[in-house]
């Protein structure tokens, strides 16, 4: 079976600083894959490379077998990959409802239509309402996204990411800055929403990572030093030395 995401020998330099070195990663379809690593290891950069936000200096990235390195983000998105951002990245002046609805429009085939009334498209309305319901923001639907609380904005960030129905979902630290209770709620949400899809998640909270992931990759200085099941990662001496230290015992 072809992998959902296949990264082959990707390198990325900013100027003459090499941030990603010989990156190899394979995420199987339907798998929940966590990427962990210390601050500045290049996790977000990896997300940016896979989602087309930046282009690799060399190497190749495939989505469901098709080469996507070199494509623009919207082209990759249309091929079924959707990502969230570590720093909340929503449409601040638009309402919660509008935010999610915009993310639904391409996937429901309405594209650049200027001859349809957006308020009367039944499948758009239904899907938007359903997603708002799932991210627990129905009661806030008419509030401009910029006025939401931090935790609400993080939930909206997830909602926008999953709204298009992409088969591969990438979440960059979705629970960063959340309280313990909020984190638990968000994890339950992520688990439910990504049912039957492929998930790649960057996460610092180890209990979340080990509870959620089928496989884990450890990124250190732009290179994946280990990739395996949670048990394999837990027992890997290289990982212990490089990153986990006493955290997992």
């Amino acid at each position: 079976m072809t992998a959902a995401i296949q990264v082959n020998a990707v390198e990325k330099s900013f100027g003459n600083v090499q941030i990603i070195r010989d990156l190899n990663l394979s995420v199987a379809k339907g798998e929940r894959h966590a990427i962990i690593g210390p601050n500045g290891a290049g996790k977000s950069t990896t997300f940016n490379l896979i989602s087309g936000h930046i282009k690799p200096t060399s190497g190749e990235i495939r989505l469901n077998g098709e080469v996507t390195s070199g494509l623009r983000p919207f082209e990759i998105n249309r091929r079924g990959l959707s990502r969230s951002f570590q720093v909340t990245n929503v449409f601040a002046r638009m309402t919660v409802w509008e935010n999610v609805r915009c993310a639904v429009l391409w996937a429901t085939g309405h594209r650049y239509a200027f001859w349809k009334n957006v308020d009367t498209l039944p499948e758009v309305k239904q899907r938007t309402a359903q997603i708002l319901d799932e991210i627990h923001l129905s009661h806030r639907r008419d509030v401009p996204a910029g006025l939401l609380t931090y935790a609400e904005q993080r939930e909206l960030e997830i909602g926008i990411t999953i709204a298009g129905g992409a088969s591969v979902i990438m979440l960059d630290e979705p629970t960063a800055g959340m309280s313990h209770a909020e984190t638990e709620r968000a994890v339950a949400l992520i688990r439910r929403l990504t049912e039957g899809r492929t998930l790649v998640i960057v996460e610092h909270d180890m209990s979340v990572v080990f509870g959620l992931a089928d496989r884990i990759s450890v990124l250190v200085y732009g290179h994946i030093i280990a990739s395996g099941t949670p048990e394999e990662i837990r027992g890997n001496p290289k990982v212990k030395e490089a990153y986990l230290g006493e955290e997992v015992d």
């Binding site: 998105n77 951002f85 601040a92 609805r101 429009l105 239509a113 200027f114 498209l121 298009g164």
Partner: peptide
């Protein structure tokens, strides 16, 4: 026009053109 899919995406481009690329739009 403001009530069409294009009109709504215009607003999204106004607010955050970067994110628009990640919901399928150029």
């Amino acid at each position: 026009l403001t009530r069409t899919p294009l009109g709504r995406i215009c607003n999204a481009v106004r607010d955050n053109p970067e994110r628009v690329e990640f919901i399928g739009y150029d």
